[in-house]
Nucleic acid binder design. Structure first.
Lengths: 218, 218
DNA sequence: CTAGATTAGATAGCGCTACTATCGAAAGTC
DNA sequence: GACTTTCGATAGTAGCGCTATCTAATCTAG
């Protein structure tokens, strides 16, 4: 298949494909001459993964790292997961206070040695941002978060297909990265549903009903 | 307080503060003359929120919308949540297949009318990206996700402080937006812990132990 | 009262990202 | 042999989040 056909089938412009080639996201096709290369279904599938990553908010550089982990997986799935996480972690500069994060994780019996320091730093950063905004997550809510992520992680890990290494790699890397937007949007839906229930929104009597509990004069 | 003092106390450069003023993120100080304005603690707190939002990956434009919702909250908390969500939703172009998303939400008895169409579109987009990458979330895992987000949303909504409208606004808007990075990083920690357990990582015998279950020849 | 610092407001520039456009030389196609 | 396609390189673009510079007005210390 030539580049124009690959473009037609994938819906990605020739210019963008060339860009991904240059950036090392897409491997070169088999060169059949100085001005011709041959692409196959693997390139087509790879383009799908690239577009999915980029549209999920992953940068070119991070996508390159994720794809590198897919192409050249560490021997152990555990290291693979670490590589996938490292690839998409927000790159932080500036000092962080890790104590709060470690205390939080200790509530679940998660000791800091059992996972990458960068991942813990991500928790610390998120906590710091909440703090800077003057927002405090109630303890009960935080417990629900901790419980929820543990359930999710357990379910995800239980679902890793053991039959084929390639499938396991795909599952771990993409499942970790591409599920993030899904979770966030599902949470938004659930919040709106729960909010509708809590404040009893019913199209006509919405304002009166939902206004009442808030507008208590101080 | 003058702008330089505000800068010192917040750790944000004068140039950046001016930029936020221009962009409408930070309200002007009280003008005391043609070349002097007076800032107070509200500006300082606001700067904290601004930095927290920007460092959480929210764009200037989205932060402006979030802050507008904070400043000028819709009467009902439900609408407020919608405004906060709308402000940070990935702005999508291109057609989406909503059917899969609606079917998914129907599993929880969440009908599409009960939440904003844009939020459902976000779910559809996430599903589409997973699909384009050739990744399928197992049904059991998806059920765990749905259950988890419902638990989280319920806990969050139960925690809304009803005593003060301002606190409720803060809670809903910032809780929705700033908790997102926290959840994602907690999930990464949980995944690494679960992966360590699943593949029995123990620093020395890691490779042999964790390699075995994967390298089963087909 | 004056020298120097500070400020508001305006404008311009910068470094980065994800493309997009153009071009010449080589090669394939009708 | 005319026309199209491709490769590879290079340059340009639009947007983002600042950052730097400048002017004119004003404040502040001595």
């Amino acid at each position: 298949m030539r580049i124009s056909e690959l473009s037609d089938r994938s819906g990605v412009s020739v210019a963008s494909i060339k860009y991904y080639l240059r950036e090392g996201l897409l491997p070169e096709g088999a060169r059949s001459s100085a001005t011709q290369a041959d692409y196959d279904e693997r390139h087509e599938r790879r383009l799908g993964v690239i577009r999915a990553l980029l549209d999920s908010g992953v940068s070119i550089a991070d996508a390159r790292a994720v794809l590198a982990a897919l192409d050249d997986p560490p021997a152990s799935p555990h290291d693979l997961l670490g590589a996938a996480h490292a690839a998409v972690l927000p790159h932080v500069e500036g000092e962080l206070d890790l104590a709060a994060a470690e205390a939080l994780l200790a509530r679940m019996g998660w000791t800091e040695g059992a996972c990458d320091a960068d991942v813990v730093a991500g928790v610390a950063r998120a906590l710091q941002n909440l703090d800077r905004a003057g927002f405090t997550v109630p303890d009960e809510t935080m417990d629900v978060y901790l419980d929820a992520v543990e359930r999710m992680a357990t379910a995800e890990l239980a679902g890793v297909p053991l039959g084929s290494p390639e499938d396991a790699v795909r599952y771990v890397v993409l499942g970790s990265v591409l599920v993030e937007p899904l979770l966030l949007s599902l949470r938004r839906v659930a919040e709106q549903i729960a909010s509708g229930r809590r404040f009893d929104v019913s199209t006509d009597a919405a304002d009166e009903a939902s206004d009442e509990p808030l507008r208590r004069p101080t």
